[in-house]
């Protein structure tokens, strides 16, 4: 299982890459593996929309499951990944790269302090696989 050390994670299996005041959000390798083949991604959040921590920003569907993606940190949507609409399989093949879902301008960067680091997230995954 791939859990990059430079990202922060939520218990709901989202990751966020924080660079300055900008965050990039997607779902983890663990999440895509649990979902299996992703057939559809819908970004619910709209450009320039202000969302709180925990608000839904996207929906991911596989043939056997559906998952809502929540913002791990609140902020204003600055960019959404339109490519996922046509190539949802990117979520399976490159969850931390091409399959990013939204970029946000963080409203309160300190919210990220409550997220998991890679080690803690690793443990969070292992517990659930047992």
């Amino acid at each position: 299982m791939n859990i990059p050390a430079d990202l922060k994670y939520s218990e709901n299996d989202e990751w966020i890459r924080i660079e300055g005041n900008t965050g990039t959000v997607g779902i983890t390798d663990f999440a895509q593996d649990q979902l299996s083949d992703v057939v559809f991604v819908e970004i619910i959040a709209e450009q320039d929309e202000e969302l709180n921590q925990g608000d839904a920003c996207a929906t991911v569907e596989s043939v056997k499951a559906a998952a809502d993606v929540y913002l791990p940190v609140g902020g204003t949507i600055t960019e959404i990944n339109e490519d996922l609409l046509d190539t949802p399989e990117l979520v399976n093949t490159d969850p931390y790269g091409e399959a990013w879902m939204v970029k946000i301008e963080l409203s309160d960067p300190s919210q990220a302090d409550g997220l998991l680091d890679a080690d803690a997230y690793q443990k969070h995954c292992e517990v659930r696989l047992a």
Binding site: F40, E61, S62, V63, K64, A65, A66
Partner: peptide, 10 residues
């Protein structure tokens, strides 16, 4: 198909 929309999953 598209069963992920349905009550038994969602």
């Amino acid at each position: 198909t598209l069963t992920a929309r349905e009550q038994h999953i969602r």
